[in-house]
């Protein structure tokens, strides 16, 4: 019996060890573990419904949005005011996609973005369920990570609520089981997430979806962060 318990404890211990992803995230990235999470919302816009359990593989994601300085390393012709070198870069979808590929990464899917922002428990905001102005970067005028309270998402990402909107890889399509018709669904618009505090508080919810033409962002401040697959 003693041997049985010893083996069991060893097995349980090793299973925990082996179930963890032992790869260290590259600098500036955090690990998002494989598994299910609560995606969508019961009370947001109709395109956030139905709320569901969604799954992702493990992946790494940038802690912060890509800055102007970082983007300019990829595109030396990218212009920005000297005072905004640390601000999130505002770019079109194809610019964001090209940067991600250049960096050996890719843009996050909606699922990946939402999981990185809210963790597994279905929280409304990256930090919990209550809004406060001090939790967010007001808009692109401020630099990344400069909110007063500096709350991180459950996986350690910053500014996933407020700051600039963020590109995802996905076209704007209905979630499985969503039967509300919308002429914008299809492969015309890309989904941006995270809101900008220039808009109302509800737009910085982790489940909020918004569609925009990938190459015509006009007045929308849209930036991005990248993900890296784990082999």
């Amino acid at each position: 019996m003693k041997i049985f318990y010893t083996v069991l404890i060893v097995l349980m211990g090793t299973s925990i060890i082996f179930s963890q992803d032992l790869r260290k995230p590259p600098e500036g990235m955090v690990l998002v573990a494989e598994g299910g999470f609560i995606m969508g919302s019961k009370y947001g816009d109709h395109d956030e419904q139905p709320q569901q359990i969604a799954y992702t593989k493990a992946f790494f994601i940038d802690k912060y949005e890509i800055s102007n300085t970082e983007f300019a390393k990829f595109d030396p012709n990218f212009e920005f005011p000297a005072s905004k070198k640390d601000n999130a870069a505002i770019v079109t979808w194809s610019q964001a996609d090209a940067y991600a590929k250049w960096a050996g990464k890719r843009l996050p899917t909606e699922k990946e973005w939402e999981k990185a922002a809210r963790g597994i428990d279905g929280r409304v905001f990256p930090w919990g369920n209550t809004y406060d102005n001090t939790y967010v970067v007001w808009d692109q005028k401020s630099t990344r990570g400069t909110s007063i309270a500096k709350p991180a998402s459950p996986y350690g990402c910053y500014d996933m609520a407020g700051g600039v909107w963020e590109w995802t890889a996905d076209w704007y399509k209905p979630y499985p089981g969503n039967n509300t018709p919308m002429e914008q669904y299809g492969e015309k618009y890309k989904v941006m997430r995270g809101g900008s505090n220039f808009n109302n508080h509800s737009f910085v919810r982790t489940s909020q979806r918004y569609y925009v033409l990938p190459e015509k962002i006009s007045n929308y401040p849209v930036g991005f962060r990248c993900v890296l697959d784990i082999e």
Binding site: Y43, N200, H201, S202, R205
Partner: peptide, 18 residues
């Protein structure tokens, strides 16, 4: 027209708003 809330159109008791 698309049925979504407008960018600055939130007075909803179920949603965080100013």
């Amino acid at each position: 027209l698309d049925g979504k809330m407008t960018l600055w159109g939130n007075f909803c008791p179920d949603l965080p708003h100013q």
